[in-house]
Every structure is written in structure tokens, then in C-alpha cells.
Design a protein around this nucleic acid. Structure first.
Lengths: 119, 119
DNA sequence: TCCTCATTTCAATGATTATTGAATTATAGG
DNA sequence: CCTATAATTCAATAATCATTGAAATGAGGA
């Protein structure tokens, strides 16, 4: 991943509505959600959600597919992984054992949030 | 981590100079770098690097410590982990096995970028 | 074909944010 | 105590971005 694309992705995630959309779709999984349902879920106007969906798509965070009259969006898990990898690349000058303990149980999972209880 | 703080963090990472600073410090490891050295490395004015360092500190991405006349900044690895965890929380509605393969070897490491060669 | 629904595009407005250079604070050494 | 160095603060300017409502597109069903 290039720096430019990573910045676009982080900028996309820095906006309230867009971050909510991405988390909504991360939690929804590969099944995804229709644009209209997303608009309702995050409570913004159709035109506004469309604006943000385009931005997220351009940033490589979500992918669209057509299904009947609706357009279904789902999280781009490969894009998310690439973004995280870019941020952490060459961590600790090639000695990941230094920061690995701090990152170990970060990604994914129901309660990834407070996993380091016993550590 | 709260949504508000996550947005602040992503906004911090979305700016060219700040993203370079964070990656510089991620690669530098716990040792960190002095503000002046960072300014030189990313080629911006002292006042401007100070502005961005404050923003990154406020976003929980870096931490400062004083050492003689200099202020040494290093990456906040716990903060980075929390941010990633927030983004991926409750992935696939509690079924991380769905997206885990896509995220498996993302974090950390010398070539985290293209690690899934053999899978 | 005609009509309807879902989504997108467009132009205008208001609000944030980065950058610059000068002035200021704070630390350490002579 | 005085000087030099390191970093930060401040005010002003320029640039970027989100939001709104109306109009347009495009796919499907009657």
C-alpha cells in the first residue's frame, strides 16, 4: 500500500458518519447492507450517505455490489488489513518482538477491546 | 476506546506529515526520537512539527518524555492497538472466523505487507 | 412502454484545518 | 547570572471538506 492511499483511508475513517458506516459493515460481515438501510441506520440523508459511501469506496474500505434495485455495500477486509499492515510496517526496526506483546490480541473478535485483562 | 477518540486518531493519521512521523516512530521503536530530529527527518519547520506532535500526542498515537534539553517522542503502541481493536470490534457479528483469515498476519513485522504468501 | 423506487450527482454554503514567521517559554552549560 | 539551544505558542491566511435540497440517473415490475 502506498502512503497516499493510506492517508485517504485514514481521512475517510476520521469522519463521524463514515466511521459509523465502516464499523456497521465490519460487524455486518460479508453479507453487507443496502445503501438505504445504511442511511437509516446512521440517520443521515440519502444524498449524504451516498457521498460518504463513495468516499469510503474510493478509500478502499468498502466494496459495492448490485442486487436487484439496491446496491449492497460490505467492508473490504483486505483493504482494512492492508491499512493496518502499512501503519505497522517495519515496526521497531525489524524487531517486532518488542512491540508484538502490545499488539498481540488487537485485531478482530467479539471483545478485542479489553482482552489484555490478565497480561 | 470511544468513538470520539478513534476519530481524533484517524484524523491525526490522515495528514501527510503526521503519518510520516508516526511511521517513523513505529519503526524507531520504544527508543523514540527528539522533536528536532523528527523535524529534520520529515523536513518541516520546528513550529509546524510541534503543532503536529501535539496533535498526535492528543490523539494518543505518540508519547513524549523529557531528556536533557530535548523532548523525545515515541510511538504509543498501546494506543495503536486500541485503535485497531476499535475498528475491528465485533467483526462479523461475533464470528471472527469469517474475517480472521483476511486479517491474520496483518499487524507488525518487517514485511507484514506481503506475508500471506503460503497461507 | 410507463411508472416507481433506490441511489447518485450537482452547486452553494458554512465550518475545520494546515501553514507561516515572529515572539515566548524553558532547560542546561559557561 | 547570562547565553545559547530546543521546543512551543500565537495570530493570520489559505485551503479543504461536510452538508443540504433539488434534479437526474438507472434498474425493475406492472
Amino acid at each position: 500500500m502506498e502512503e497516499r492511499q493510506a492517508r485517504t483511508a485514514f481521512a475517510a475513517l476520521s469522519q463521524e458518519t463514515r466511521l459509523r458506516i465502516v464499523r456497521l459493515l465490519v460487524q455486518a460481515g460479508p453479507e453487507g447492507m443496502a445503501a438505504g438501510a445504511i442511511a437509516e441506520a446512521v440517520d443521515v440523508s440519502p444524498s449524504n450517505v451516498s457521498f460518504h459511501l463513495k468516499d469510503l469506496e474510493h478509500a478502499g474500505m468498502i466494496v459495492p455490489r448490485r442486487e436487484a434495485r439496491s446496491i449492497i455495500y460490505s467492508a473490504d477486509f483486505a483493504g482494512l488489513r492492508d491499512l493496518i499492515a502499512f501503519l505497522m510496517k517495519d515496526c521497531c526496526a525489524g524487531h517486532p518482538e518488542i512491540c508484538a506483546p502490545a499488539l498481540a490480541d488487537a485485531p478482530c473478535g467479539p471483545s478485542a477491546k479489553k482482552k489484555r485483562a490478565h497480561a
